[in-house]
Write a protein that binds this DNA or RNA. Sequence first.
DNA 1: AATCCGGGGTC
DNA 2: GACCCAGGATT
Length: 355
Amino acid sequence: MPAGAALSEPFAFTLPPAAALLAWYARQKRELPWRGETDPYRIWLSEVMLQQTTVASVGPRYARFLARFPDVGALARAPWPEVAEEWAGLGYYARARNLHAAAQAVAARGGFPRDAEGLRELPGIGAYTSAAVAAIAFGQPVLPVDGNVERVMARLAAIDTPLPAARPLLARLAGGFMADAAARAAPGDFAQALFDLGATICTPRNPACALCPWMAECRARKQGIQAELPVKAPKRARLVLHGIHFLLRDARGAIGVRLRPAEGLFGGMWELPGTPWREAPWSVADALPHAPAPGVNWREAEGVASHGLTHRELSLGLLVGRVAELPPGLSPLGAEAGLATVMRKLLALSGAGES
DNA sequence: AATCCGGGGTC
DNA sequence: GACCCAGGATT
């Protein structure tokens, strides 16, 4: 045996039979809007929407997006502000920008690449999404490894190496399922069966092992440590950032907004003008030099908009004012503009409403 | 390998 | 509140 083989397989672990999971899936699978779809555009859209986003959140947005952009050509032709509007509130806005760019690339080349390697070249499609689309839409024998699959594998093989360091090992173990004829014959179903197992049985907390088709083979279950796995590295504390924004109306009542830069936080989305966000709180006097127009009689809105993100906590205050005409650089806020949720919270502070 | 990037459901 | 979610890009 070559030395590399021994290093890559430090755990002598026999995978449980794929057929048992597929049989369970046939009975217990969730009914989801994208289930049964094979159109690569629809599968791709569902996978991108589901990145770090719960099924419950995606459900209503998936149908709405497809109604507006029914195929990849329609999405490719759409101007960015319409895509931003349709994605508003879903978060991780780079997904929408990459989705738009990828649609244009696919339209230009006349269709989707048919395998994971080709899909991987498209913006916003990484190791997971390329494998998911290849398996579900094209029947390629690859296994997408998401958080569900990592958790299931960590428990099956009782891997106590903390994430994310354990990720390569877990992916390697999971890939072993593609040597199982039952999984290889239905890679899309098998992947989704693993997702459903992780979502409904092998859950992060209080896994329902008694209902698991692989209970007998699960090492963590045998050791009684299933609820402790996977181990995760400790998370860093969140930084609190402060800012003050300006709600400026013109004589007709239109609210002035501007487009954020394409990169970075809330990239490409509309915002109320404001100060930079920093750790030190702003006084009104410090904020005024950042006002979008001079000589405005600003009124301080009650309270602050608090908004938690993965690595930051935003605390934003609001000043409200009126001018005859919006200054250059500000556009009137459209009724359905692409506003991130934190900006809708700011608007709500003033009683301006959200839509 | 670490960090950035949203928002909501859930316990 | 803390944790989690059908992750990807960047450095």
